[in-house]
Write a protein that binds this DNA or RNA. Structure first.
Lengths: 202, 202, 202, 202
DNA sequence: AATGAATGAGGATTCATTCAT
DNA sequence: GATGAATGAATCCTCATTCAT
């Protein structure tokens, strides 16, 4: 009765779809954060993020009360795609190809939002943070994948899922040219990844 | 006598013998920096360094105009030992053991101060900085060592010296617990290194 | 009928009867403000007030354009009761008892919300504000009461009505524990009031 | 030996008398704080204080790391004078005159640094703060004085030292015109104090 | 009328670096 | 040469108030 009363002001239905301008600002903020964090690292100035988004600081804080909420939002979509990919890879039937493809995905995730590897590393195992929760999902997918590859005998028995992930994030970090005095012409992700892949193969 | 001691500042020709108290302060500053950086990482407060050294900030700046000069001075000694080690390893006759030992040295150097890997990465290829110069020396030693191991056939032909170094610094970064919410009990350097080593072996 | 209810807004002639939902919101806001101010003092967050009322901030501002309007509305009822009390006291026939009772009322009013004494003090003599107007009414009642007590010879001749009120508000302020580092177990209003009462008696 | 060595830079003796410019800035800061706090209350902007002193914020924080250190410094001198006065008053032989004079001192202290009464009230009983410590001293003096007056029979037996102080601070607060919309022409401290004094007399 | 998103000034605090003593 | 006082940019965050929807 209450929700169908004539007093209900504007929204006809019960769900609140987020106002158009709010949604637009959210998008802008995410884009600005992506850029800013790429340049300054995930410690980058939030004030700067707001400025780039053409938005007041207050707006940023309304949308993302904590820095991690911003990072989490940044990663969420990507991670979900990666996890979905992992599942589809398992259906491909080639465990080694799957491992390769997955790690390339991870690197691509970490490279897209440069500097985010640091953040992931920091909260990777803290399920109490939103970011940690996303990471847990991602690690779960990778773990299953690796287990399978191990069972199929294409990966060394002693390779731990977390350790491999860590090295891969280390590669992402090493390839990150941010703050380098003389930018390397070549990010050289591939050669580094190849070393690791060969280290995994049994 | 004083100016020929092994602690003489880096410039090859010292015009003036450096006053006794200046030398003493330099030593104190290095020691204080070592402690401070060990606790707070290489981003640690310089004011804190000066305080621990029992010296004014101004004095610190006179001796080490930039933070990197301080880091460089701290790494110099370590790096020289590592380079010397590389040479002695070549005399051991076992190229694979040499590669292993050397990379472990590198990791140990990088683990000295939290965050130092980032500094190294940033200036690695910039010979105009003091830190870059030290790195160049180090890379030279590693390059020769790897070449030898490759010639002996114990290391894959396609492994590039710089790429391997990068991955190893990536490992150091990944093992760095700074800013981690829930510090991992175990930095897990060994398992990560093992993956890389196995990736190098031919 | 609706506009003659005791809850009608302060303006004497209400052109339009005020929509039912508007009236409901007004009530809710007052209730929420009462709670919030009781907890956080009169400096409490207005956003919080709106939230508790289950209403947007905008609505709050529509009903109460300034914080003082809210405070005024909250005090209005209390003050009216106090004024009425003053009149009934005069009928009691005991002027000293009346003075005592009245000042206790004032203290009780001022203790309603932390910090409200400051608001009262600030606008006490400014009849252009709604709060000031209420205060003027209140002071009028007190003045008459005191005059009577003076005429009856139970109160010193040199006691000025405003001065006494000021001291009493000062007591309310002194008893206010807001921001105290170590909250006093006992606000000690009574002993302070007793000093003042004894200072009044002739 | 060490302190007489030729290395000792400027200060001939062992004590460090504070550099001339530092002392000057300290004075300026205190003056600026006095003014700023008078206008904005003790919650006044520290940035403003620094600006008025013609000094960077950093300088303010170097001299007074916490707001209370500033307030404490502001009160220290005054309080000491008041305490000394209390002692001299006891030698005067007239306990009632002493009580009167002392409370006038207290009011004068509280009025000089307007708004400071609030701060005193907040930390009055917290000996862990520097301000609380100063207050304790002050209260000690007053307590002794009052005890004496009580023993001499000129003050009511039931008057508690702390309660009286509280009312007096309440008077200071009530007389404070800061933030009043229509400043009262007359601070009216005297009439209020007289009420309290008469309330004390036995 | 109601809503709540957006604003942005404002306040506290830190610290690398410079410079007067 | 040594000292440490001074600087002030930079960062985080909060909240009263306005205004587009």
């Amino acid at each position: 009765m209450t929700q169908t009363s004539p007093d209900a002001p504007t929204s006809p239905a019960a769900e609140r779809p987020m106002r158009a301008d709010a949604r637009r600002n959210r998008e802008r903020l995410l884009r600005a954060a992506r850029d800013t964090f790429a340049e300054q690292g995930v410690d980058g100035s939030l004030e700067e993020v707001a400025r780039r988004a053409g938005v007041g600081v207050g707006t940023l804080y309304r949308h993302f009360p904590a820095r991690d909420d911003l990072i989490e939002a940044l990663l969420h979509e990507r991670f979900e795609r990666t996890i979905a990919h992992a599942e589809s890879l398992r259906e491909g039937g080639d465990p080694w190809a799957a491992v390769e493809a997955y790690l390339r995905d991870v690197l691509s995730d970490a490279a897209t939002f440069r500097g985010v590897a640091a953040s992931i590393k920091a909260t990777m195992h803290d399920a109490s943070t939103p970011l940690g929760t996303v990471c847990a999902l991602s690690r779960q997918g990778w773990s299953t994948l690796l287990e399978w590859a191990r069972a199929e005998g294409v990966v060394r028995a002693d390779a731990d899922a977390d350790d491999v992930l860590r090295v891969v994030y280390g590669i992402a970090w090493a390839a990150d040219q941010r703050r380098a005095r003389r930018p390397d012409s070549d990010p050289r992700i591939e050669p580094m990844l190849r070393i690791v892949l060969q280290g995994l193969r049994s």
